[in-house]
Design a protein around this nucleic acid. Structure first.
Length: 649
DNA sequence: GGGTATCTGACTA
DNA sequence: TTCCATAGTCAGATACCC
């Protein structure tokens, strides 16, 4: 399959870099055995591109980060009685063990190579052939293609190097939506309250169904998979376990077209996880895998072996998250996502590199139009607009601006994006996007966190509100009364009796929103921050809420859209939120060779800043401009002296 | 000076 | 020659308000 004659010495690539280039899906089912050789071919194919250079740079930054972590570890362990620390860790682990709940039967069902399988239904000629869906970047690959190392997220031309006979086929989003609807409707017979985690996967709590039908979990899941195949001719794999995380890992066990049930007892769970690579844990990606490996944690079992280090480096690693992972104690709450949980809505597009200001602004305008359309169709407004752009070097930057009014219109989106990007010119970019956050749900006027009420809720501590705060146990009705009270205070001419009539019409409602935000300004009563759940535990390592977003498997712009990720650890206990990154040590600075600014060397963004300045300089040169000063700075490497370091007012 | 909001980059799926 | 799109969370620095 490979041409070994032309193979360069493997040592010219570090193992970590080869893995990085190979992308995030290398552990997926159906891959060929010789991953090392595949990684080498991928590196050879990518070599020399800007993408490759950027990946190399990011890999080096992680290596530097590891250096800092190891130093912190050595400092933390200096003069410490390890046995004593281990005892403290053991006590914490024992406490966590007390939260184990084996009462619920959770299933994770995952369609096998969904896009590819749907394609196969419509094009039986592809049967037995290596093919992949997508062109620039692949969304999925048939199992035949996977044998060559072709996987989702891979560039088409790289995939062709791995498998020259690979057939690339187009997306067919309407068919995915159709089949997804059919599959989900089968799943709903087993749990009407399921959590769809993408168009091709879902979490179900089948406890009640099994009880009422006198079925074992395995029988129930077998039955469900049969029904799916019978009605759609698509196969699914499933995992049965006491928590979502364990079910997710289990569903991968007998893929494709199989199922796996994890025994519901502590010993089996811990032993199942013991030799499992930490990379299999949702939320631990390429970077965190390397960071953990650097302190000896490669498997979940290693978490226990190195518990003293983890306990001492809680800030860096999030000890509770890791100990819970080791124990397999994570969330078993299965419920669908509500609209109110949405946090942002955005649109972005990649194109071949653009430097012409006018053309870039045209792209921005197109994005604004699309985003306005999407916000209108889905009923959202927002207060913060974030511009995102990717340089032709693949470095990504964001710039944001907040308002004290609700943004919905293309004119506002475009004007804000334009304002944000203009101070960055000249630029040579390959992606531009806009995202709106601090959302308000225009379809839910009575919904607490996002509806009209949020304007009048008592402010959080430190922000006294003229009205008293809620008493513990106060009902929603009571709260709404406060709303009315506040509203009356703010707008004396507005009477309760008129409310239903006014809210019955969407246009009127939006008008009300406008009035309302004016009122808020006039009275200096600030909208309060989104109501957060009572201190759910989250790992400090990374965002474990973003566990399996379906984005790469999600039908296009306005189809059945983004099914959101869900936390695996959101309801298992009121454990402390974790902090996160390397704290600042003594601050050293270095001047950027391009703009001359004093930059903190303790920050990983230093090199990015220099690269950014260099690239700006190069573009200026191309534009025949003089000077090399950079107007602003970027987060993470702000100048440490004098005054405001903020980029713009 | 303390608490909160905002901005940015990083990471994840 | 060529390497996506969308959404979420977090940390850390800074800005701002009381």
């Amino acid at each position: 399959m490979f041409n070994h004659d032309t193979a360069p010495v493997a040592s010219q690539y570090s193992e970590s870099f080869l893995k990085r280039l190979a992308g995030p899906s290398t552990g997926k089912a159906g891959l060929a055995k010789d991953q090392t050789e595949i990684n080498r071919i991928i590196a050879e194919a990518s070599k020399g591109s800007k993408f490759y250079d950027n990946e190399k740079k990011k890999d080096n930054e992680v290596t530097e980060r590891i250096g800092r972590i190891l130093k912190q570890r050595d400092d933390a362990l200096k003069g410490v009685d390890i046995k004593c620390v281990e005892q403290s860790a053991d006590r914490l682990i024992a406490e966590l063990e007390g939260h184990r709940d084996l009462s619920q039967t959770i299933v994770h069902v995952d369609m096998d190579a969904f896009y590819a399988s749907v394609k196969l239904l419509d094009n039986p000629d592809l049967e037995g052939k290596p093919f992949a869906v997508g062109h620039g970047v692949l969304s999925t690959a048939s199992y035949e293609a996977r044998k060559y190392g072709v996987r989702s997220g891979m560039a088409g031309f790289v995939a062709k190097k791995l498998c020259p006979e690979l057939i690339l086929v187009d997306h067919h989003f309407s068919r995915y939506t159709e089949m997804s609807t059919a599959v989900m409707s089968v799943f709903r017979r087993y749990d009407p309250n399921l959590l769809a985690a993408g168009c091709d996967e879902a979490y179900l709590n089948i406890t009640a169904h099994c009880e009422s039908h006198g079925l074992t979990a395995a029988e129930c899941v077998q039955d469900m998979r049969k029904a799916v195949f019978h009605e759609t001719k698509l196969t699914a794999s499933a995992g049965i376990a006491p928590t979502k995380m364990l079910a997710k890992i289990s569903s991968d066990k007998n893929k494709p077209n199989g199922q796996f049930e994890l025994p519901f007892n502590k010993e089996s769970i811990v032993s199942f996880l013991y030799n499992l690579s930490i990379r299999k844990i949702p939320g631990i990606g390429r970077v965190n895998e390397r960071l953990l490996e650097s302190v000896g944690v490669k498997t979940c079992g290693d978490i226990f072996i190195h518990r003293a280090t983890i306990y001492l480096m809680d800030k860096q690693f999030g000890s509770q998250f890791l100990f819970r992972t080791y124990l397999g104690i994570t969330s078993n709450v299965v419920e669908p996502w509500g609209r109110g949980e949405r946090k942002s809505i955005g649109f972005e597009r990649t194109f071949s590199s653009l430097s012409d200001t006018k053309k870039i602004l045209n792209k921005l305008e197109e994005i604004s139009v699309e985003l306005e359309k999407e916000m209108e169709e889905t009923g959202w407004a927002g207060r913060t607009v974030t511009l995102k752009f990717k340089l032709d070097t693949y470095q990504v930057f964001t710039r944001a601006k907040s308002f004290d009014r609700w943004i919905t219109k293309k004119e506002d989106l475009f004007a804000t994006g334009k304002e944000l990007i203009q101070s960055e010119f000249p630029l040579s970019i390959r992606l531009i996007g806009l995202r709106v956050t601090k959302l308000k749900d225009l379809r839910s006027p009575t919904e607490p966190a996002n509806g009209i009420k949020r304007f009048f809720e008592p402010l959080q501590s430190g922000r006294p509100h003229k009205k008293a705060k809620l008493d513990h146990g106060e009902t929603d009705v009571d709260t709404i009364d406060h709303v009315h009270d506040d509203y009356e205070d703010a707008m004396p001419d507005f009477h309760e009796n008129d409310e239903d009539e006014r809210l019955s019409d969407q246009a009127d409602f939006e008008e009300l929103i406008e009035e309302q935000s004016d009122t808020v300004r006039t009275h200096a009563v600030k909208p309060r921050a989104p109501v957060s759940a009572p201190a759910p535990f989250r790992p400090s390592l990374t965002n474990v809420d973003a566990l399996q977003s379906s984005t790469s498997l999600t039908p296009g712009p306005s189809g059945s859209r983004a099914i959101k990720p869900r936390s695996f650890s959101d309801a298992t206990g009121p454990l402390k939120p974790k902090p996160g990154r390397t704290p600042n040590a003594s601050i050293e600075t270095q001047n950027c060779p391009v703009c001359g600014k004093a930059l903190r060397t303790d920050n990983q963004g230093l090199n990015s800043h220099i690269d950014f300045c260099l690239s700006r300089g190069a573009i200026r040169e191309a534009h025949g401009e003089a000077g090399n000063s950079v107007k602003g700075t970027m987060s993470g490497f702000r100048p440490i002296s004098k005054g405001k370091a903020k980029l713009r007012k």
